[in-house]
């Protein structure tokens, strides 16, 4: 790595000030699992690196009416968190798939999102769970739905002086408090290896069912477009309908239309379209099964 200075803020305010002072020459680091390889390969050469590790407000997972995930919560924390595993299963699925255990103990949800790779494993589950990004900047806090957070490959709505603080999302309804509503979610990705890999395609589905009919469906796709995307037409096709295998197959076909994949060394566009169909079908089926469980 080339040389750089390090700033070690202990609050969000301090951090935002540092970012404002150093502008585009500064990079924030949390787990470092994306930033350090980029720096080592000379893709980014920041003059200043701001460590988020000393900011308590960015840490932890809080469970209340919904879920608040601090930007510096690690993938491993989410993978093992009892409430996430029980109620936000798609997120637990996605978190458990990042890198290896050595990487998951470092990699943070905020880093996974701010790195804005189309293949980010935690993005589709959070989109399917309708998460919002809580962003701090010089003018205070703002909230952006995660589905509007990504603007391109490795690009987000974050300004150079802004910081992702947390993700907040409503609780998917589960019995008994939701009465007849039940909700379930699932994230499945395809990779040639079982661990230490990057999604060729990833699909997250979250379905809420009432009296045998789907009242809400959220499907989000990774690695098939410049950003993680919703399969909106597929979601609409399911809502108000019973989730029969035929209906699920139809939605899987519609999800393919939301995919605009490229061919690269990880997979061809043809294979990616094929996988969107397969994995949409599988995640919807798994989500439905979890909703019923």
């Amino acid at each position: 790595m080339r040389r750089f200075e390090m700033i070690l803020p202990s609050s969000v305010d301090e951090c935002v000030k540092a970012l404002a002072t150093h502008g585009a020459g500064a990079k924030t680091v949390a787990g470092g699992t994306d930033l350090l390889p980029q720096m080592k390969n000379g893709l980014v050469k920041p003059a200043v690196v701001v460590d988020l590790g000393g900011i308590a407000a960015l840490k932890g997972v809080t469970n209340g009416a919904g879920l608040r995930v601090g930007a510096c919560a690690t993938a491993r924390e989410l993978e093992l968190h009892p409430e996430v595993r029980k109620r936000y299963t798609a997120l637990a699925d996605g978190a458990a798939l990042v890198g290896s255990v050595q990487v998951r103990n470092l990699a943070t949800v905020g880093g996974n999102l701010c790195n804005a790779a189309p293949s980010a494993d935690m993005a589709p589950p959070l989109m399917a769970l309708e998460a919002e990004a809580v962003i701090a900047g010089p003018k205070g806090e703002r909230r952006v739905p995660l589905s509007a957070f990504f603007t391109g490959v490795r690009q987000t709505v974050l300004g150079a002086d802004e910081l992702l603080v947390a993700l907040v999302m409503p609780a998917p309804p589960v019995p008994p408090e939701a009465g007849l509503y039940v909700s379930g979610g699932s994230y499945i990705r395809h990779t040639p290896r079982r661990e230490l890999d990057i999604a060729v395609v990833g699909v997250a589905s979250q379905v809420t069912v009432q009296n045998g009919r789907c009242v809400k469906a959220r499907i989000a796709l990774a690695s098939v477009a410049p950003t993680p995307v919703h399969a909106t037409a597929a979601e609409r096709a399911l809502e108000g309908q019973p989730l029969t295998p035929e209906r699920i197959e139809q939605a899987a076909g519609l999800a393919v239309e939301a995919a605009k994949p490229i061919s690269d060394q990880r997979g061809s566009a043809d294979f990616r379209r094929h996988l969107v169909r397969v994995l949409t079908r599988r995640t919807l089926t798994a989500a439905l099964a979890r909703a019923r469980a």
């Binding site: 040639p192 290896r193 230490l196």
Partner: peptide, 8 residues
């Protein structure tokens, strides 16, 4: 070694 995939 993420994309040159030796078996784990």
């Amino acid at each position: 070694l993420l994309d040159y995939r030796k078996l784990t």
